[in-house]
Design a binder for these strands. Sequence first.
DNA 1: GTCTATACTGAGATAGAC
DNA 2: GTCTATCTCAGTATAGAC
Lengths: 219, 219
Amino acid sequence: MGVQIFLLDFSHTYDLIGRMIDTKQRILDAAEKLFGEKGYDSTSLRQIISEAKVNLAAIHYHFGSKQELLDQVIIRKAGPMNERRLKLLDRFEAESAPESAALEKIVVAFVLPAILVEKSPGFVKLMGRVHAEGLMPEIARRNFQPMIARFLSALHRALPDSSQKELIWKAHFALGAMSIALTASPDVDPETAAESPTNLANRLVAFISSGFRAPATLD
Amino acid sequence: MGVQIFLLDFSHTYDLIGRMIDTKQRILDAAEKLFGEKGYDSTSLRQIISEAKVNLAAIHYHFGSKQELLDQVIIRKAGPMNERRLKLLDRFEAESAPESAALEKIVVAFVLPAILVEKSPGFVKLMGRVHAEGLMPEIARRNFQPMIARFLSALHRALPDSSQKELIWKAHFALGAMSIALTASPDVDPETAAESPTNLANRLVAFISSGFRAPATLD
DNA sequence: GTCTATACTGAGATAGAC
DNA sequence: GTCTATCTCAGTATAGAC
């Protein structure tokens, strides 16, 4: 393998060492940056190849389609994010054993990793867009479902009086609240712009936890 | 004007009375239907003209662009929806005067009209998509801002101990919760599919009201 | 197995005849 | 106001260089 790279370095097709073997990463990096900045459909593959300095067809060789490229961009980031969520949840549950973890802790474990990953260029902003563009179905099932199931069972232990259906609906509401918090853009409302990740997480946790403790309906 | 229509009826260009003058409505109807069913970018102008039985260039004559067409589709529905919100809020405030309206009533006034308009083919589903595609900025300011300001001041009276900033953030969270509730698709989670509008409204009001009563942060 | 060059189909937009 | 023809650019597919 090292030999191949060495040989290719002397051909006219490749002007820099390594350019060939990191093509996939270069595409992913460029795609993540541009998707996050301008949205999925406003970003053309030709803009991505220009940023990544690769050939157009290389995208279809490595990913097959623009949609599949988006999936891979998300999976690359979502994997570590969901792992952090589960790690945090494990820790909180271990700390409170044999009691179940406090509701607030569970919510923190879910919310915080998502807010922190936002530091990378526009990833969660992208997630929010993706969610509402209806591009989620397959990607969600494969990469988020196990994590979601784990959190639902933790919630069920923390709130034993709530039915499964109630918890699923509230989890939806919580996801919506978080999603909008991460996508809130400075231009819509200047006052919401300058909020530190920690403050935002605190606001979210307070709001969501209280919602989970509310009765299912008021009737 | 009636004379003109009568005359045109005998030319070969127009085969039915009125086809010419309701072109704009036909386009709006078809666009609303298709945008709601398949999303904004998955719907082509050529599909819309096929459904509306008009010419492609007619869209650009009447609306200028696909984006502007989407704006008009939304505005046509959002106007009545926001009027219903304000009417409800007025009624609740009048009923409780001179006391401020109860928080739960305010939330109902906001949530219920949005859920009821959903009966029309996919309008709020469309709204959710639009929101996350970042297409909202201009349209939001012009058609939603007055209504939002009115609700914020009602919330301020109902929750006098909360700061303006706290209320704005919580309103964001509430909007996100509602938005996701309306876009939740049966295929993502079957259990959330068969929920009556009334039940959904009750769940949302319970969750959101409780979130508003929570402290700004837990610290 | 990777990448380049190029062509194909369908999109939104526009100009100008009527 | 409406229609035909056309423009540019998008995502995609393929043939072949290395």
